[in-house]
Design a protein around this nucleic acid. Structure first.
Lengths: 187, 187
DNA sequence: GCACAGAAGGAACGTTCGTTCTCCCTCTGC
DNA sequence: GCAGAGGGAGAACGAACGTTCCTTCTGTGC
């Protein structure tokens, strides 16, 4: 029996993260969530007023994890080493087992309304990443960090999309090489 | 009253394209499709055994349109002019009214199973685009056309994802500039 | 020891979904 | 003129959905 360690709320969040990511949001019914989280319906609705609230909580929890992982990667010596570490992290993510694209892009595909709280969470995540890579490009000495930051975002979004649909290893190599080229990390 | 010109099948396809793209696939019920296509349920199921078949037909029709649009853009003079025209086309698409990301990436978010006929249609579309841009990079004289083709795919995927979630105009400028840089179209 | 909050277990609600069915009308080919 | 295919209109199906409710149990603080 899985999912008996943490609190019911944590089990719900962890199950939501796994099921929403691997199977899509609208396709996963509340039944599956409560069953696989070893939680009852009553407990579900005690913690989350509606399924949508769990979706938003799942995205925000994922956002937190990604920010922590990126912060750790960027906590290297020189800006060049930080940039290389970030590219490695991206490549590692795209090649990880069970990879299914970007949590936020996938969620946006299912929630078209930009005013939806779920889309707001997506926008906040993207604004953070955009800002992070732009400042990284600036520290790495790129002559046009705004442009370089936007290209890094495009490469990142593209890698997350393509790694699910094409060959992840090749996508990994491509995004790392393109990022290194852009930031002139090889000389 | 819209959608009364073409055949019921064409009206269904056109309506499916519009609704699936702008609102998502699982969120659009058969009711909406038949109502907005001015078609009865019986007619719907006479042409498509199930909703899934309409989804696949919608993707294949979109694939056909994109291939035609790209072929027209590439039908220019020099390889450099063709490449510039393709980049312009991408920028134009990402800034068009009602843009909602990539039809195929969005559909994949809702259909996780790679064996699903819908995912097969997505894979075929992507293989075509990958091949197209690789041959374009080769004709444009890039020293490593395989690599350049993969970067163009990443930039393309990234642009389609980012243009919906961020500022389309900036995404447009960025992808065009990055593509021109990659293929050295500016000198 | 007891009150009370939180969780389990499970039935039940009303709605909506995809799909099927019946009936009737209107063309078109022969 | 008629047969048959294709489409319109709408009722109806069972299943699945999100949500609510009721009852019972278990822990913890006072």
């Amino acid at each position: 029996m899985p999912n008996t360690g943490q609190s019911p709320r944590d089990r719900l969040l962890e199950t939501a993260r796994r099921l929403f990511y691997t199977e899509g949001i609208h396709t996963v019914p509340v039944d599956r969530l409560v069953t696989e989280a070893n939680v009852t319906r009553a407990t579900f609705y005690r913690h989350f007023p509606a399924k949508e609230n769990l979706v938003e909580a799942y995205l925000r929890a994922t956002d937190d994890e990604l920010r922590a992982a990126v912060a750790e990667a960027l906590d290297k010596g020189t800006p060049q080493e930080s940039a290389a570490a970030l590219l490695e992290l991206i490549g590692q993510v795209t090649c990880s087992a069970g990879f299914r694209g970007c949590h936020f892009i996938n969620a946006s595909a299912e929630y078209p309304d930009p005013e939806d709280p779920i889309r707001v969470a997506v926008a906040e995540h993207r604004a953070w990443f955009q800002d992070t890579v732009t400042r990284l490009a600036e520290r790495a000495g790129h002559p046009d960090p705004e442009y370089a930051g936007r290209v890094l975002v495009l490469l990142h979004d593209g890698a997350l999309s393509a790694a699910e649909l094409d060959d992840p290893q090749q996508v990994r190599d491509t995004v790392i090489r393109a990022g290194r080229d852009l930031l002139r990390l090889d000389g």
